[in-house]
């Protein structure tokens, strides 16, 4: 590590989208492939992350801290933490997932993707479009073709909510 010869821990500042600053140990951000490369190659001490909301960044830093403390003996506790971590409104979960994807935190990315999948699996098409902010580019005729082709996929109690 560049400046730390006295055994002192190196400090790094992350700047969220609304300029809020988060000071944390450099070792924590090494879990992010993106930040790791920035730190190693450019030896920066402050990293602006304008596309990530501070609220999201708070959550992710919380995860990085917990994950760094993970040992075989607190595995159960960590699992519970993970469960609680994704237990947020869907919009917030998507924000986190997008940020984790951008930061390339691999283990957490898989976990977030699974959490999103679990949350949308029973959603209606309309709800999914709202959640992902997608405008349909199919004509109503084309859409009814899908319904005709695999009617069973549209049967059952589908969830119209977006949270």
């Amino acid at each position: 590590m560049a400046s730390s010869t006295t055994g002192e821990k190196k400090i790094l500042t992350l700047k969220g989208g609304d300029n809020e600053e988060f000071i944390l140990e450099e070792s924590l951000v090494l879990q992010s492939e993106l930040l790791k490369n920035m730190v190693k190659e450019e030896r920066v001490s402050s990293i602006p992350l304008p596309s990530i909301k501070s609220k999201t960044l708070v959550k992710i830093i919380e995860y990085l801290k917990k994950h760094a403390e993970l040992t075989p003996s607190n595995k159960e506790e960590f699992k519970n933490f993970e469960k609680e971590f994704v237990n947020v409104v869907l919009e917030e979960l998507l924000d986190i997932t997008v940020a984790v994807n951008y930061l390339k935190i691999n283990g957490l990315l898989e976990f977030c993707c699974q959490a999103v999948a679990d949350r949308i699996k029973d959603k209606s098409v309309e709800a999914v479009r709202k959640i992902f902010r997608i405008e349909s580019d199919f004509t109503p005729e084309e859409e009814s073709e899908f319904r005709k082709e695999t009617p069973e996929a549209f049967e059952g109690d589908l969830d119209d909510t977006t949270n």
């Binding site: 997008v98 994807n101 098409v125 992902f132 589908l158």
Partner: peptide, 28 residues
């Protein structure tokens, strides 16, 4: 809410059951 890159959408969809995927074919 930033729009999700296609690779991330793919990562999410890969984890779904066939029934959901057949339905989500008509999202866009």
């Amino acid at each position: 809410n930033p729009s999700l890159p296609n690779e991330l959408i793919t990562d999410i969809l890969e984890r779904l059951h066939v029934k959901s995927l057949l339905r989500f074919k008509c999202v866009s």
